[in-house]
Amino acid sequence: MDLDSLRDDYDRVADRYVDLGVGELADEPWLRAALTAFAEQVRGRGPVWDVGCGPGQVTAFLADLGVDVRGIDLSPRMVELARRRFPGLRFDVGSATQLPVEDGSLAGILGWWSLFHLPRTVLPDVFGAYARALAPGGLALVGFHVGDGELHRTEAYRGVPVRWTTHLWQPEQLCELLRAAGLVPEVEQRFWSEPYPQVVIAARRG
């Protein structure tokens, strides 16, 4: 996987992403509900990482709910925008494939539609890293596009050139990978959106 290319693409789209309001939660009551339930499970239990935080809106939503949360993103421009938009919160550059976190140190970890570019051979290792980062009883929350196969894009967000592959997953496949990593799925919430359904899965470290 070419992380440098992915980083460059997200640096390139970051400002347009914010201008278009991509990922904002104001008109997404069911997504807010999933995040609120997650917050209730992790609040007061320790730090939480939002891995692939983008420009920070989900990190900020969790912080407003009293969660001790930190945002991590591969794109320096996304991190710059997140820091500018939410100056009271912590955002750092980092990759889901190399999390700089101590084993067993987190109460929660989020992959909110931030892992779907990862090749199918890489995702099991990332889920394994999530499991190691979580304290016993800690909770992971992940969001994915539902389907089969891959989507290849050469532009995004109204004409910005990119070189993206989106890997579609069936929820049953994701649950199998989570279990193999030591995370027990507890909740699956599916959204019947177009052109592809979406799914949020909460899984707990035993």
Rank of each mutant, 00 (worst) to 15 (best):
L110K: 10
T59N: 09
E150F: 14
A140E: 06
P76F: 08
R70K: 10
V67A: 00
F38E: 00
P161T: 12
P197I: 10
V22N: 10
V22C: 12
G104I: 04
D11M: 04
D103P: 15
A129E: 03
Q41K: 14
P100I: 05
G108E: 00
G71M: 04
A96I: 02
G138S: 08
R45N: 14
V67Y: 03
T59R: 04
F127N: 02
H152Q: 13
S105R: 04
V42F: 04
R12S: 06
G128V: 02
F116L: 14
R204I: 06
P76V: 05
Y157W: 12
R120S: 08
P76M: 04
A107C: 10
E194Y: 14
A34L: 07
T166F: 07
A135E: 06
A129G: 05
Q198A: 15
W112F: 08
H145R: 15
Y10Q: 11
G147S: 09
Q170V: 11
A156L: 10
H145P: 13
A33D: 09
L177T: 11
A14Y: 01
D9H: 15
F191V: 09
Q57L: 04
V184I: 11
S95F: 10
L183D: 07
P29R: 09
L35A: 12
L106I: 10
A133G: 08
D73I: 03
V101T: 02
R90F: 07
D4A: 13
V93P: 07
P161W: 01
S75T: 01
R90D: 15
L123Q: 08
A96F: 01
S114I: 05
L178K: 04
L134T: 10
M1I: 15
F116R: 01
L35V: 10
Q41H: 12
P29N: 05
A39W: 00
G128T: 02
D125I: 13
G159F: 06
A180W: 13
F38G: 05
R32Y: 01
L134N: 02
G23S: 05
T59P: 03
A202V: 06
S95V: 13
E194F: 15
V67S: 00
Q189V: 15
E176V: 12
D50G: 11
Y17M: 12
G56C: 10
G206W: 01
Y17E: 09
R12F: 03
V126C: 01
W30R: 13
R132Q: 07
R153K: 14
A156G: 11
G56K: 00
R163H: 14
V199S: 05
V93L: 06
P55G: 04
A133Y: 01
P55F: 07
R70S: 12
V67H: 00
V184W: 01
L65R: 03
F61S: 03
V122R: 05
F91E: 01
D4V: 13
R12P: 05
V122W: 01
D125G: 12
D125E: 13
Y10N: 08
P161F: 00
L123Y: 04
A203N: 04
E40Y: 07
